[in-house]
């Protein structure tokens, strides 16, 4: 029996809304340690890795490890029926072919349950090696979203260059060229405006903006986002979900032939 009760139910809605355009169907893996998902987009250029720890749930029971294949589009439709402040409980029998979502209003005066058919999805699990990143930039998630959106109107690729002076996002296209530089400001009076750069050595990488833009759909989940980069390796775009875990994206770089 798998049963998980999430008081901040809208967190699940935000997670699914953040990934449903990148990945259409995926396996949610349940174990006693928590609720995870790992999936690549169809072109195998980007990867989503979700991890929600069991201790972040008000109640979490998983008698036997199980993998629940779901259509993320259908899951998003069901979660749209949950109230923003509803408590969400997921339930699935060990050998069942459905998963039930129960939504309870805070005043418990409205309870609804939706049953979603599970799918058989062959899971291709990738090993993500620990990487000694040359640079990790942490900036407000809204700032990252804005940079990706602004540069998308200029070109379809971005060069992200991290130096001790700051991190520069450059793009060029038919319209022209654009450079956006964000400097470290750990002294910003408001924490949510802080930008920090942990630099071991300067690094510059080129990426397709449409994926970075898609990752920014996770903005509602966290105040900040971290970009971790190393030469000729995928960038890790990391949204920490407070007290629960993280939603991470990896994107393969574009490399000169």
């Amino acid at each position: 029996m798998f049963e998980a009760r999430l008081v901040q139910g809208n967190l699940l809605k935000k997670v699914v809304d953040a990934v449903k355009d990148l990945v259409t169907d995926a396996n949610f893996d349940c174990s006693s340690s928590g609720f995870t998902l790992q999936a690549m987009d169809n072109s195998h250029v980007s990867l989503v890795s979700l991890s929600l720890r069991s201790d972040g749930f008000e109640h979490f029971r998983c008698d036997r490890n199980m993998s629940m294949g779901m259509s993320l589009g259908n899951l998003a439709k069901i979660l749209k029926c949950a109230g923003n402040d509803d408590i969400v409980t997921m339930k699935a029998a060990d050998d069942g072919d459905t998963v039930t979502f129960m939504f309870e209003s805070p005043k418990e005066d409205r309870v609804s349950d939706f049953e979603l058919k599970l799918m058989d999805i062959d899971s291709e699990h990738l090993g993500i090696p620990d990487t000694d990143y040359a640079a990790t930039v942490t900036l407000p998630a809204a700032e990252y979203q804005r940079i990706c959106r602004d540069l998308s109107s200029i070109g379809d690729t971005v060069v992200i260059s991290a130096t001790k002076d700051g991190v520069k996002f450059s793009s060029s296209g038919d319209v022209g060229t654009a450079n956006i530089t964000v400097r470290q400001n750990t002294t910003a009076d408001k924490k949510e405006e802080q930008v920090s750069i942990d630099l071991k050595e300067p690094v510059a990488l080129t990426f397709a903006l449409r994926y970075l833009n898609s990752f920014a759909k996770a903005t509602p989940l966290a105040s900040h986002v971290s970009l971790s980069m190393a030469r000729d390796l995928p960038v890790m775009v990391d949204y920490q979900i407070s007290d629960m875990g993280h939603l991470r994206f990896y994107l393969a770089p574009k490399i000169e032939d």
Binding site: M40, S43, H44, V45, S46, L47, E124, H125, L126, G127, I128, P129, T157, T206, A208, L233, P234, Y250, A252, P253, K254, I255, E256, D257
Partner: peptide, 14 residues
């Protein structure tokens, strides 16, 4: 022009 790589080149199937 830089070529788009794929994650399979960086992450191995487990």
């Amino acid at each position: 022009t830089p070529m788009q790589n794929h994650l399979d080149e960086f992450f191995a199937m487990v």
